[in-house]
């Protein structure tokens, strides 16, 4: 192993005294304070800040229009063009979910249903939003393009039960999504 000798920088007298550096620091923080009070902190415009510092005053101000396409908010189930539940309850999301927030009870589609060919759909589908960490793995793993992370981020509830999104609620949030792979048409 080769040894590399690193030469430490020579300290000048003022460096060693430490005091000039303290005053430099005080001057720097003072400049920031002045800018902050005048509402001219660096980046305050881009971040749509409240004026004091660069902090945005939530919930009066929101950043919704700045949210990127790929923003990972509340996970939800979607239906396709024909209002068919895309989820076939393969339970891969339940398996992959790191905090175990997803609970699925699979069920069979009755034979008189229009989509009886698909055979399977979730009987119950619950996502516990107190557990969800918005990692998006469920969306990534889904073989049926049935679960998506929406842009909603304000998830609130007064009880634990309220924080569990059941199947009905998940479809409400998710809504309809068009233009996905159409796997279950009559020819296939």
């Amino acid at each position: 192993m080769a040894f590399i000798k690193i030469k430490r920088p020579e300290l000048s007298l003022s460096d060693k005294l430490y005091i000039p550096a303290i005053f430099k620091g005080l001057w720097l923080t003072f400049k920031h304070a002045v800018k902050s009070v005048r509402g001219k902190s660096i980046g305050s415009k881009d971040l749509a800040s409240s004026g004091l510092g660069i902090t945005m005053q939530y919930p009066e101000q929101k950043w919704d229009e700045h949210l990127p396409e790929y923003y990972r908010g509340v996970p939800a189930l979607v239906t396709d063009e024909q209002d068919r539940e895309r989820c076939v309850s393969c339970q891969l999301c339940e398996f992959i979910c790191p905090p175990k927030a997803i609970k699925i009870i699979p069920g069979e589609i009755p034979s008189d249903d229009e989509w009886a060919k698909v055979e399977k759909r979730p009987k119950e589908f619950e996502i516990d939003m107190t557990r969800c960490i918005y990692c998006g793995m469920c969306e990534e793993v889904c073989p049926e393009q049935a679960i998506y992370l929406r842009q909603d981020y304000a998830v609130t509830g007064l009880t634990r039960e309220e924080m569990v999104n059941d199947k009905k609620r998940l479809y409400e949030i998710g809504g309809k999504r068009v233009g996905l792979v159409n796997k279950w048409n009559e020819l296939k």
Binding site: T29, F30, H32, A33, I42, S44, L52, G53
Partner: peptide, 13 residues
């Protein structure tokens, strides 16, 4: 408040 102002923040308001 002062620390917040020094650090471009808001502090308890």
């Amino acid at each position: 408040r002062v620390s917040a102002i020094l650090q471009d923040r808001v502090g308890p308001n």
